[in-house]
Design a protein around this nucleic acid. Sequence first.
DNA 1: GGACTAT
DNA 2: ATAGTCCAACGCGGT
DNA 3: ACCGCG
Length: 659
Amino acid sequence: MTLETYQAKRNFKLAPKSKDGKAVSAKRPAAKARSPAPRERDWPKGARKGAMPDFIEPALAKLKPKPPAGDRWIHEIKFDGYRLQVRVENGKVRMLTRSGLDWTEKFGSEVVEAFAALPVQSAVVDGEIVVERDTGASDFSALQRDLSEGRDDRFVFYAFDLLHLDGHSLVNVALIDRKQLLESLLPDDNDKLRYSAHFNESGSLVLDHACRLSLEGVISKLRDSKYTSGRKGDWIKSKCSHRQEFVIGGYVPSTSMKNAIGSLAMGYYQGGELKHVGRVGTGYTAATAQLLYEKLSRLTQNENSFDDKLTSEERRGLIYVKPQLVGEVEFRAWSADANLRHAAFRGLREDKPAKDVTRETEKIMAPPLPKSAVALTHPDRIYWPDEGVTKEGLANYYAEVWRFMAPYVVNRPLALLRLPDGINGRQRFFQKHAWKGMNPHIEEITDPKDKQGEKLLRISDFDGIVALVQSAVLEIHPWGATTDNWEKPDMITMDLDPGDEVEWEDVIAAAYELKERLEAEGLAAFVKTSGGKGLHVVTPLTPKAGWVEVKGFAKWLADSMSADDPDRYLATATKAKRTGRIFIDYLRNGRGNTAVAPYSARARPGAAVSMPLEWSELTADVGPTYFTVDNTPTRLDALPRDPWDGFFAAAKPLEKKKR
DNA sequence: GGACTAT
DNA sequence: ATAGTCCAACGCGGT
DNA sequence: ACCGCG
């Protein structure tokens, strides 16, 4: 990792967050233009006096597969919310949608008040209103839910352009100057109204990092461009997902609706042959599903529409149709078997002849997902109601992460947190012993130190984790040792648990501090989000030292850190005096103790997961609950390698010297 | 989620 | 039949 | 010895 890319990542900020997920204001130089009278302002080149127009047609971005190259372009995060034009006139605020509708009343009072407090007489600000999850990216589905439920306490406005100010039109001013003026006006202490910063790094780098952060994509804009209404091409949108047309070669009728399709089998032409790319089973409304059925049921044929031989699973329930219709599909990746990953139907393309549909993207292919023979009894049982994550959704998540996760959960004694009725249900219990009626893919094992005792639990493959999901296991907590070597741990997990009022940046600093101390002992250090409150720093060990020694070392680490900096760190779990300090929890490292597994879901609102990170990815934006069951697949598709690549290869034995 | 137990 | 119950556990530090 | 804490 070069310093340059490291810094590019560090700079990759949306808005810094404190550890409890509350946004903290970005540290910017105090705005100079806080309250100048309009005529004192230095107007940038291109500003023209003029009355404020009623509505300025917004500039829209063209979708391109890649961000443009070259330093004429700057790149902003693509927000996943509603585009709004905010008009301030003498303290009165109106918020207009893309088409000019007045939606001021829909978003509560906080954003409006923030605009009313701006040091301006009048202004037109372009931006996007979003709902941010506790600690993270904007979330369109949360926005829509908040709107429909009348909830108005989570809206945040990202301002990215300034079109008019105090009797001056700015649409002919260079973008970079408009943004600079905008930034100078915005408060630096109001987390409901934020400045949308841009990046000067190469567009592909910015997009890559956006995708690794599970964001939607980036918007690229010409640095010196005027504000141009409409989709003229000086704003370019590139996304972490891909979009292209495919030919419909068959359909599966819906099981829940009459005369409607349930999914489509699609393909593209290559060398005159129709290549099958798998099924698209989401993305259509009931109306579209019926329309497609009506059109497709007239095109049915008996023989395979594809030139590939389909497997029996691919053929199941499939009705072939003459390959004539073309549909647009959004998807995140290609799988290694040349199927689409996470595909959603986005509409029919009546204008394109089927024969012209070819494959448009070259992409590193994602490896195939593991499949399980374990049946889920109620696949649509909802485990996380707010996120709509079901039992099947959780199983699919583990299929996505399994190739990375397996080494940390397989062949280790497990403690499980089970919530048969989901996270809001009445039942929640830990379990570390075998139970009656247990799925056979969960193994009963005997603790060699307690041969008479109750049997412990272990899984050895993907079927095992699906069996855990079926058993309503929402958190997986393995030992830090494998069952090949019960008495010799192969990792140390240090849990950095911030008390109230600890800044997230300080938790990150604590992780780096721990890393340095571990490296000073000749050990490697890896970091993951906990999915809860803090961070976990994990060290691979060559199994050599026993539990007592390893735990003693962990305690020594925690003790020495708190001794060297008692104002910041605490090595004891006492609740009192936790405020403002970080508890370094070393006691996950005794025999029989556990820590939440890498990639394990957490049984809390938000469906966060414990996410392994490269150190360079550990930035202020990535709070402890940033990555979730929902947004992790986008990240994985964008990752060039396992973020903990080389974990076990980096193992060193713990040398006897410290206790 | 599922077995076992009390009513 | 149906409702209720169980499903971990232990060392640490502070009083 | 007991309590709260992970």
